[in-house]
Design a protein around this nucleic acid. Structure first.
Length: 724
DNA sequence: GTTGTGCGCTTTTTT
DNA sequence: AGCGCACAAC
């Protein structure tokens, strides 16, 4: 078979990785070095050149988006559907495994997935049942504690017990939480992974079956795996040893949530015959951008060592803008984007990146002001919205009566006279008799322990759920949802909510029906009822943030969100000590600063053509105004690699002495006598401030930020400006 | 059962 | 500052 199409566009290192003989492979792939391409090419190569069946390949990613992309790219390359191939996220594949072997995993067939919200509720419930005060035992912290242990593979019995009462209490909560989940067949995200791991670890028959089935296992973003994920992979490839791991230690930015870069080092120890391939040629950024990014990341001590290079052009210098405050920062950036657009660029080619989401606000206000379309990534996603969760809770309750988080969610939504008092009684009764709240309610209704009002209300609710369940059998998925919305009166409930908020909620509910209409059940899930499949899907995939139409708009997102993406024009903002690197990271120590630096590296390497670094000298954050000093990351870039642009204050503001004097006004003197920071007047555009200068003589161009019309590039010779 | 008031917190995010 | 949450008052 002709397999040249797989290799045609690959460089030597990429080819080496793709065509390596079967063995453990560790691909250290720098930013923009084509790692996804290598991963997909490897699969295509295995199938076409070695005749490996897609059925014996597993490819694991972290996000649903990445796994979808991978699947479609492989299908494009091979020209055939890859239905039988296990491509998915760690959680998705673990879920599949547990569904197939629910008995061996000691789960009910109807086990349900708890998302982090549900999990938090369960933690709170555990606290309550143990009579612990939430004020002393913050539920969030307990949730973090529980997940932390699970991610390290520790069950309550394996948590080292010291004679510390605080530790003991936390452990008791973990233990109780686990009992509750087990009793009602509820599985949180980390449990999904831990169960799947234990399933293979403890069940020799299954383990060997899967070890034989999966001759090749491939992982993307290996540096982001946590202990249990890596352990699971190791079990799977114990026989074949064919683990193909692609990762970049310099882009490890999820240590705070349990990711272990050390897994990269451990890999070579666990598999002594590992072949390591480095992908160091970058196809994304200009030399200038790459050099600056390399200069920053070099300051990290714990690196495997790798130096990205590019055969591409030198490009524009990396530029630095020092703003007075966050408002000025936003104004300046938007001026630059306007200039970019005027020169024929697309808004969607530009990205404003920030360390923390709170920073997006200023940018949004300014963008709204000038009427420039933008899209903010992050924030609440579709399946996380309250109204959607309510609707899903109804469905879940119909699907599985013992789902307590769902029960609590909708028992009084819309309000039907079941107040906290009644719910407390149900909860307490359930706890004492080891029942689900559904069961407890049924018994309470039959007893005389409730007021007659509560008794009636509760019975109405139970009947409602049963009514919905009986009406939705044998209906299409979307009709099931419509029936549920109708009988539960959720739509009416949200219609009453005043303002746009209510409208938006109703729209979202309608959108849910649409989503259900278009929902296609995965063929590996044909053992599941469509509704169950849809519900699992909703738990495992929270959906897009905003389901907006595709418009040409400026992209706003956090640095974490930007990982894996690229943009011709990037603004890396808020480069200030305390904000980036973040104060919390500075305080926590132990490698957190290096992680911040990697984050900076990730941000810088998103840029293809032009990278702007910005910081403000004063910033309003958490209500108060603070003077800030420039981020240490800025001083790590040699001066000659950065071109500083600085606007002089309009008023009598005196700039503080800068640490890096070379940044100040190095552009200010121009042969024409015009200087950055000068206030000028234009016959048509009015008054403004010079923010940038380039070129010489008659080609000299000048960028002016006009107070009325925003930022404009003008040819100096024709601009007809007067100095103010 | 809804509506108001005060308090406390405030990084990053996927599943 | 602004938001979410918990508890208190209507």
């Amino acid at each position: 078979m002709d397999i040249s199409h797989i290799f045609d566009d690959l460089n030597d290192a990429q080819r080496e990785a793709v065509a390596a003989p079967p063995s453990p492979l560790l691909i250290l792939a720098g930013a923009g070095s084509g790692k996804t391409r290598v991963l997909t090419s490897r699969i295509a190569y295995l199938v076409e050149a070695h005749g490996v069946s897609p059925l014996s390949i597993m490819a694991v990613t972290f996000t649903n988006k990445a796994s979808r992309e991978m699947r479609s790219r492989i299908e494009d390359m091979l020209g055939l559907p890859m239905g039988g191939m296990w491509i998915g996220t760690f959680h998705g594949l673990a879920h599949r495994l547990l569904r197939f072997h629910y008995q061996e995993a000691n789960l009910p067939q109807t086990f349900q997935i708890l998302d982090s919200d549900d999990q938090l509720r369960m933690v709170k419930r555990s606290l309550k049942e143990l009579a612990l005060d939430e004020a002393y035992w913050p539920p969030k912290q307990l949730q973090w504690y529980i997940n932390g242990h699970k991610e390290e593979g520790r069950r309550p019995a394996n948590v080292p017990v010291e004679n510390d009462p605080q530790q003991k209490t936390m452990l008791a909560v973990y233990s109780h939480y686990e009992d509750l989940c087990q009793r009602f067949g509820l599985i949180d995200f980390s449990e999904l992974l831990l169960r799947a791991f234990e399933l293979l670890k403890n069940n020799q028959v299954l383990r060997e079956r899967y070890q034989e089935r999966f001759q090749h296992v491939l992982v993307d973003e290996f540096q982001d795996t946590n202990s249990i994920q890596y352990g699971w992979l190791r079990l799977l490839v114990q026989k074949s040893h064919c683990l193909f791991a692609v990762g970049d230690d310099d882009q490890s930015i999820y240590g705070w949530r349990g990711a272990k870069v050390e897994n990269i080092l451990q890999f070579e120890k666990d598999f002594p015959d590992t072949k390591v391939v480095r992908l160091e040629q970058n196809y994304r950024s200009t030399t200038n951008i790459l050099n600056a990014a390399n200069a920053v990341i070099e300051n990290n001590t714990t690196r495997l060592g790798k130096n990205l290079w590019t055969a591409g052009e030198q490009g524009e210098p990396v530029k630095l803008y020092t703003a007075y405050n966050e408002q000025d920062e936003a104004t300046f950036i938007i001026g630059q984007i306007q200039a970019w657009v005027e020169q024929g660029g697309l808004r969607s080619e530009t990205a404003i990146l920030y360390r923390s989401n709170a920073q997006s606000r200023t940018f949004e206000e300014r963008l709204l002001n000038v009427g420039m379309p933008y899209k903010v990534y992050g924030g609440l996603r579709f399946f996380e919205r309250a109204e959607i969760k309510d609707a899903l809770a109804y469905l879940r309750l119909c699907d599985s009566n013992d789902n307590d988080p769902s029960f609590e969610r909708v028992v009084n939504t819309p309000t039907r006279g079941i107040g906290n008092k009644t719910i407390d009684i149900i909860r307490e009764y359930a706890r004492q008799n080891q029942l689900s709240m559904w069961e407890a309610s049924n018994r309470l209704i039959a007893s005389t322990q409730l007021t007659s009002r509560a008794q009636t209300a509760l019975a109405t609710f139970i009947n409602l759920i049963q009514e919905i369940r009986s009406q939705i059998v044998d209906q299409d998925l979307f009709q099931q949802i419509e029936i549920m919305l109708d009988l539960s009166q959720l739509i009416e409930h949200f219609k009453k909510e005043k303002g746009e908020k209510g409208e938006a909620r109703v729209e979202n509910l309608q959108e849910l029906v649409t989503a259900a209409r278009g929902y296609e059940i995965d063929e590996t899930e044909d053992d599941l009822a469509p509704l169950s499949s849809f519900l699992a899907h909703a738990s495992l995939e929270a959906g897009e943030g905003q389901a907006e139409e595709w418009e040409d708009c400026v992209q706003l997102m956090s640095l974490h969100t930007a990982k894996g993406l690229e943009f011709p024009l990037v603004f890396l903002t808020g480069l200030e000590e305390g904000l980036f690197p973040h104060q919390r990271s500075l305080e926590e120590g132990s490698g957190r600063l290096e992680e911040e630096r990697r984050l900076c590296y990730v941000g810088m390497t998103r840029a293809m053509k032009q990278l702007w670094l910005t910081h403000a000298e004063s910033r309003r954050l958490y209500g108060s105004e603070k003077y800030t000093s420039a981020s240490r990351f800025l001083s790590e870039i040699p001066d000659e690699m950065v071109q500083a642009v600085r606007v002089k204050p309009k008023t009598s503001y005196v700039a503080p002495v800068r640490k890096h004097s070379a940044w100040v006004d190095d552009q200010s003197a121009h042969e024409s006598g015009v200087a950055v920071g000068m206030n000028v007047s234009h016959p048509k555009f009015g008054e403004g401030t010079v923010v940038n200068l380039e070129g010489h003589g008659e080609y000299a161009r000048i960028q002016v930020n006009f107070s009325d019309v925003g930022s404009k590039w003008l040819v100096l010779a024709y601009a007809n400006l007067t100095q103010l």
